[in-house]
Design a protein around this nucleic acid. Structure first.
Length: 352
DNA sequence: AATACGTGGTC
DNA sequence: TGACCAAGTAT
């Protein structure tokens, strides 16, 4: 090897990576076969589903979604409550709201055709810097600098960027730009993600299998797993609340959460305030003979943990306007976020 | 710039 | 088994 050439050599990275990708690419439901034209709708949908969400979690949900809403027009015309229910369990529910809003914008403002350029894509709700670049590259073949957490890791190691995230993102993006090829930009982006997912992993990268080993400065220096350096995480506060299970015959009262904020727009069980100390029976949805169960439900969100007490009551009144009375036997189909699905399971474990 | 925003897989 | 983390975006 020529000891004077740069490491990594930007001209060598893409060819080596693409050759590896041609042999080892993952077969994924949203990925076009080699030589096949990508469907922008499927590319966009998969990219949004995959935001902060693992391939393992998305894989079983993707085809069912496409079967139900196969294109922009059908999604633009969809019942938003059904869309939200279909997203239940995937988290970050603003993504589902933005999916419908973006589909409507495609139909209303772009004649039903997905915009092909990165800047216009960036104007659609839910498409940030990453997703706009990924769609431009993967669906339309444009050269775009696609930087997700995989690319950050691979690039930080290739170039031995020791600055901590998030400050390192400026240098990482500049380095990613230097190795992004003009041709096969979509394959290059997906190859970087496959490499980050399967070879250049967070804790114990498989450097001996890596097609970029000869280009990697962190490998040469001996400790690639130390990069990228990350800022220390803050402790998550503990909160407490109460879930109110109001039963009438074989039905339970469900409400819809406010359109924005935590679990925004989702069906839910009624809750009282979420606060720093156990609130007991504060703020029930209706006056009833509430009984506190012994069991609690624990759940972790990104920025706090919560422990919820379960209060149960029965009623004969209709309580019109409070929410929906939902058949308990069909609760699976209500599309409850995981927290409330857990609570329902806890109530029924004891009743069942 | 820092924070809000979910969940399930992984080791 | 409890961290840690993932194909980020909006404000």
């Amino acid at each position: 090897m020529d000891a004077t050439r740069s490491c990594p050599d930007p001209a060598h990275v893409a060819p080596a990576l693409l050759a590896w990708y041609d042999r080892h690419r993952r077969a994924l439901p949203w990925r076009a076969l080699p030589g096949e034209v990508a469907d922008p709708y499927r590319v966009w949908l998969s990219e949004v589903m995959l935001q902060q969400t693992t391939v393992a979690a998305v894989r079983p949900r993707f085809e069912g979604w496409v079967a139900r809403w196969p294109d922009f027009a059908s999604l633009a015309a969809a019942d938003e409550a059904e869309v939200m229910a279909a997203w239940a369990g995937l988290g970050y529910y603003a993504r589902a709201r933005n999916l419908v809003a973006a589909a409507k914008a495609v139909v209303a403002d772009h004649g039903g055709a997905f915009p092909a350029d990165e800047a216009t894509l960036r104007t659609l709700p839910g498409l940030g810097a990453y997703t706009a670049a990924a769609v431009a590259a993967i669906a339309f073949g444009s050269r775009a600098v696609v930087v997700d957490a995989n690319v950050e890791r691979v690039v930080a190691r290739l170039f031995a960027i020791g600055e901590a995230l998030p400050g390192a993102r400026v240098a990482i993006r500049a380095a990613a730009d230097r190795i992004t090829p003009d041709a096969r930009a979509g394959d290059f982006a997906q190859a970087m993600m496959d490499l980050g997912s399967g070879i250049c992993t967070v804790k114990t990268p498989s450097c001996l299998l890596c097609p970029l080993q000869d280009e990697c400065l962190a490998f040469r220096e001996g400790a690639p797993e130390r990069l990228p350096v990350k800022a220390a995480k803050k402790a998550r506060p503990q909160r407490y609340g109460t879930i109110f299970w109001l039963q009438r015959g074989g039905e339970v009262l469900l409400v819809r959460r406010p359109g924005k904020g935590l679990l925004g727009g989702m069906r839910a069980l009624p809750t009282g305030p979420w606060v720093d100390a156990v609130p007991g029976l504060a703020e029930p949805p209706v006056v009833a003979d509430w009984r506190l169960r012994n069991a609690t439900v624990a759940h972790g969100f990104t920025h706090f943990d919560i422990e919820l007490a379960l209060a149960v009551a029965t009623t004969d009144a209709h309580h019109d306007g409070m929410g929906e009375w939902w058949p308990i036997a069909d609760l699976d189909r209500a599309g409850l976020p995981t927290l409330f699905a857990k609570a329902a399971a806890a109530v029924m474990r004891r009743d069942g």
